[in-house]
Design a protein around this nucleic acid. Sequence first.
DNA 1: CTGGACGCTGGAACAGTTACACTGGCGGGA
DNA 2: TCCCGCCAGTGTAACTGTTCCAGCGTCCAG
Lengths: 348, 348
Amino acid sequence: MSSVRAIADELGVSVATVSRALNNHPGVSEEMRKRVLQTADRTGYRPSVGRKPTNVIGLAYPNEPVRADFGAFEAVLLAGVLEGVNERKFDLTFINVNRDKNRSETYEQFFNRKGVRGVIVRPLDNSGMPEAIAADGFPMVLVADRSDDPRVNFIDSDSRRTSRQAVEHLIGLGHKRIGLAIHRVADSDHRDREAGYRTALSGAGIPLEESLIVRAEASPEGGAMMLMSLLEQETPPTAIYFTNPLSTVGALHKCLQLGIRVPKDLSIVGFDDGDIRMRTFPRFTAVCQDAQALGLEAARWLTRSLTGEANGTFREIRPTTLAVLDSTSFPPLTPVRLSERSRVVQAT
Amino acid sequence: MSSVRAIADELGVSVATVSRALNNHPGVSEEMRKRVLQTADRTGYRPSVGRKPTNVIGLAYPNEPVRADFGAFEAVLLAGVLEGVNERKFDLTFINVNRDKNRSETYEQFFNRKGVRGVIVRPLDNSGMPEAIAADGFPMVLVADRSDDPRVNFIDSDSRRTSRQAVEHLIGLGHKRIGLAIHRVADSDHRDREAGYRTALSGAGIPLEESLIVRAEASPEGGAMMLMSLLEQETPPTAIYFTNPLSTVGALHKCLQLGIRVPKDLSIVGFDDGDIRMRTFPRFTAVCQDAQALGLEAARWLTRSLTGEANGTFREIRPTTLAVLDSTSFPPLTPVRLSERSRVVQAT
DNA sequence: CTGGACGCTGGAACAGTTACACTGGCGGGA
DNA sequence: TCCCGCCAGTGTAACTGTTCCAGCGTCCAG
């Protein structure tokens, strides 16, 4: 293991210069900084202040500032992560990567500077950050997403299979026209859910109609909008799969408002990260993702990996489950259709 | 500012002994540890590893492990705290006090060892922890609770006044029998809400009936239970104040299940930390606490205090607000009463 | 009585950071 | 042209705290 003094000796400079270069302090030339960083990287330098080991892992958010709309999913995920790090008596700290990371430092240097031994990465966009961290050789695990890069450890849930089951459940009840209400941005989760939907339809020989697929924000308002937009069509669907908890809640709320009886008039399958499906009326049939388990297992593996109890790469895809509750039933004799003025009318 | 070497010189011992004593390492006599700690306390010892300043504040939870039932309130509060620490480019780390704090070390030593410059304290019981931290002189702010100790900085919201307004709102609509559904453990929040209820009733000259006050867990199930228990009474209330978001959600859900029309058959006032009141059916009239602002202002003050932009003590009581939505109306001609078998019947 | 185990302590070497001094190049004014 | 001052860049040394290993005394078993 190299030290600032080893690096200083090798380059023929002083430890002060090395320290300044490593910490992005002013007063050191760009040329010298580059040489120091190269040597540090090559010799595998890790700072160890006073040799004291610190048992902290970071929760790395790429976006700044950390999302204000701290939704249910994030909260449940966090609860799992906290439980997981607690098992090995690690601490958890939030790290705002975009805010603090210097352009010229590697991820390994950045996280070392932050004093964490490993990171749980929660990406919100396609930044390539997980791959870059893994390439730097820093202990990491990506949570609630996946990567093709073989160096990236991750845990994700696959909602494709269960999404297919959910739609097949609707088909089995007799539904022929099934809508899909999906998040506007197509991350891997929502691609899975759409793929499951398409597979179920084609498996049952039901022709796919692009007009039955609508997109909006993953919010209650978005859910209400997608519901309306589907039910205002000429021949509306008799069942809808909402691929997101918040949009499901919004749609169910709108149904109560409009007097649409679920599941008598319309069947709804939703998506659930926690237990929201139990709190709506009616309780809704849902594709369920155990967000807490995702965070728990990610933190567990990372901490065990750091204590030497685990090794190798970690690539886990957890299945989701289908919970059939009260929002799905047989299709109505006459499907519900909304007029332009958002009033309930009977379809012809 | 003293250092381990200064303490060692003063006591005539070695720095190794001082370091061991300060970090609760084995291999140092209890007598020696006590002397070292006394001297450290007296000279105002603060560790500064390599003189590197660290801008981290801790979120101190007294209970272990950190609550698994990470509810909406905690999540919203945390979102505010994260936003607040972000403003001054501080980091946030979770600190599990019961898990890590050694019995023989002071809070100041403990937090210094953890590497945080200040703490936001979120107590879940009457542990006396906030007072002890303040007595140690460590920068702290208590959030979502208050203390009589003049050294304790805190931010809390006062739901007493608005609770009174809420009940007066019901009285103004013509309600005479108003139930109170309250959390089983009487923390300062729930004491406020009960006090507001009592004040409103006595102000309107309505005699208080203890049978109209019921207590249960702050959960959807608890809310449903309290609803049932109130509506099964001989002369049930025509309006109920649920002092907690989750119990309100549970009660409204139960009403939909039982066919009780809110607000036509029964008026309900709830409590909201975020925007849950907008997601239920009907949207419920609520005493609203801005949990995000609580966390935001706590973090803001603490970080500003650490950067020298603020000083003095911080004691803020934020008012709650009454949001009148769709769950409150005039009392019904014949109040709803539930039989023992939980079926809707008409009261005589 | 003696040897080993053990508890406690100190010396020294280690980790990284930073105040201060120094050097050399550059520009501007006499 | 020359000299002074400034400034960027670097080194020296002093500082922070931690830990390995040796030493010293005590106590107990053989």
